[in-house]
């Protein structure tokens, strides 16, 4: 079992790093979206500070949606997914490993990039700390819940926009809690409650999502 997990883990990581441009593109998109806001809304430091957390979170969600479908796409089309499903190993464990790899390769770079975004949008240190914490707790949730919809749409020829349509409403609570945590931090208020709620959602998703992903993949594989 362990060998299987580490095997898939290593294979997926290696595959992801071999397609470096595909990893970099969503990050570039994120950077560009964040750049658009000062240009569109006006460069006043106070305005930027006010909209900053929301902008970063929305840009993170949108850029992650762009790249989300590659989580299972290649495996599905080259037939590895069929082998996983036929292997008799628990599919939910395999999909959990895949979600973990997806989080590592698409959201950890985002976390590394986030100081730059915070500088662009004139966030204070407290706000940045809160933003970092919400991203740390919230982005795994994006990967987990997103993987369910990716599993459902992976067999469709043009699933890209549909994936976004399915997921955006589902991500709204996370957006609300995350941005209000950063807002609270801006006002020097405690924001542990926000983090606790995001953490609770993350735990619930960790418990339930892998099974849903496994079922979704089986449906797609038919």
């Amino acid at each position: 079992m362990k060998a299987l997990w580490s095997g898939i883990f290593k294979r997926d990581l290696a595959l992801a790093f071999r397609q470096r441009s595909e990893l970099a593109q969503p990050l570039m998109f994120l950077l560009m979206v964040v750049t658009l806001f000062p240009l569109g809304v006006g460069p006043g430091p106070a305005t930027l500070q006010k909209i900053g957390p929301g902008v970063i979170w929305i840009a993170a969600i949108l850029s992650s949606l762009l790249a989300m479908d590659r989580m299972f796409r290649d495996d599905f089309w080259d037939g590895s997914m069929e082998q996983y499903l036929l292997s008799g190993q628990s599919v939910w464990a395999i999909s959990a490993v895949k979600v973990l790899v997806h989080w590592l390769v698409s959201f950890v770079p985002l976390l590394i990039l986030s100081p730059l975004l915070a500088l662009f949008l004139n966030l204070t240190v407290q706000m940045y700390t809160a933003l970092m914490l919400t991203l740390l707790l919230g982005t795994p949730l994006l990967s987990l819940v997103g993987a369910i919809a990716v599993g459902l749409t992976v067999g469709l020829q043009r699933g890209g926009v549909l994936l976004a349509l399915l997921l955006i409403p589902v991500f709204i609570p996370l957006l609300i809690f995350a941005t209000s945590a950063v807002d609270a931090a801006a006002l020097q208020l405690p924001y542990r409650a926000h983090l606790a709620i995001i953490g609770a959602m993350l735990l619930a998703a960790m418990a339930a999502a892998p099974m849903a992903i496994a079922y979704a993949l089986k449906v797609s594989q038919n």
């Binding site: 369910i148 399915l166 409403p169 589902v170 609570p173 609300i176 849903a212 979704a216 449906v219 038919n222």
Partner: peptide, 27 residues
């Protein structure tokens, strides 16, 4: 297949409906 897929999405949605409701109220 469509029925099953839409069913999964409906379940994901229904888990979210109360969360959305309370988060929006709070927001």
């Amino acid at each position: 297949q469509a029925g099953k897929a839409a069913g999964v999405m409906a379940l994901v949605g229904v888990v979210n409906v109360p969360i959305i409701h309370y988060s929006v109220e709070w927001w």
